[in-house]
Design a protein around this nucleic acid. Sequence first.
DNA 1: TCTGGGGTCCTAGGACCC
DNA 2: TCTGGGGTCCTAGGACCC
Length: 415
Amino acid sequence: MQKIILHIDMNSYFASVEQQANPFLRGKPIGITGKRSERSIIATASIEAKKLGVKTAMSTWQAKKICPSLILIAGDPEKYSEITHRFNKLFFEFTPFVQEFSVDESFLDITEQAKDWFGAVYLAQQLRERLREECGEWITASIGIAPNKLLAKLSSDLVKPNGITLTRSEDAIARLDSVKLTDLCGIGPRMGKRLNDLGIMNFKRLREFPLEELVDEFGSYGTWLHEAAHGREAFEVNVEEEDPKSVGHSYTLPKDTFDPVLMQRYLLGMCEKVAWRMRRDGFVANAVSIYVRYGDFSGNGKQHVFKESTADGLRLFEIAWRLVDSVRDKSKPVRLLGISASHLTHTSESKPTMSIFSAGGGSAFGGKKEQKHLSVLSALDKIQSRYGSKSWTRASLLPIAFQDRASGLGYDHEL
DNA sequence: TCTGGGGTCCTAGGACCC
DNA sequence: TCTGGGGTCCTAGGACCC
């Protein structure tokens, strides 16, 4: 059956949220960066900044050079996801089939509600109006309407800001033929280059290209490419909220370093954060992976799978540091460290002896000392959820906590 | 002091089991 | 005798997304 899918894409999302919250920023070129503005990039540029040549993912320094009047603001992810939650709730007024695709994008299946393309455009207009009422006029969205997610997403990109773009089934081929291969979500720069190398420069040529050859070259991705070139896509709006597969943090150090003690401190801080997020969301992990990036931007990673699940930052750290120490090329200075916990299971599903929440625990999981450690952790979690993320820190992390505060770098060593 | 930080999925080889 | 073949897990790395 013919489906009608909306893709809603918030325009310059993080920047819009800041402009909505602070009238002083409205109409001005602003850029949202990572926690620290040095050694960071522009995560989102306001419309005004984009007009002056600032692009997403540009280093802050480059952006400042191009646009000296640019106002840099450190992003506040919690604030943004709170507003994300607000507008997604609003979408449920229109249909029960809402898929949160990212912090600033959602898919809606409005087949039933819209009946036809006219109905879809009308609903999109209504939705835009409700969004303005609910979130404020500085937070706007571009909406794509199409028979599947792939085309809806492609369409929402075409008119910004605040546009509504319709691609009916019968217009799908013409729409694809009017854009570049890499405009499609799923074809990145690498794949674009590989296609070009095969003489495929556009969707028309991709459609004509033999399916078997695409499969030979790209495997199952070849089938996807073939279908996409015909404007077809099998994936439906996925209403289920899926559990995360991994929880991680990475951090670019203020300066490249050879100092293992400094690396250990940052790594411990990140492990504690990851562990805290897992406990908060009720997960334990069975694997840890780390990533080291060097000053020359090369890097390597290593993973370790273990038998006993954990949500304890110190245990994550012990494993993570062993991995870093074994994989690290000691002749190169380290620029970034990353750690990620995966093979996640719900605390309730894991064996009680492995759960840090199991009061009293079991005999299998460590001795008295281990139990005491776990009860300390859960007490600290309570303190943190009541008084906030800066309410406690490990003594070993104090040196960088103070150092960053003093220099205004503001990396949160909340743990 | 060019190049953040949060993720997902896929591939391909080796270990190991039946 | 001449080294099959399927399945799953682990690991490293690559590509993609916002």
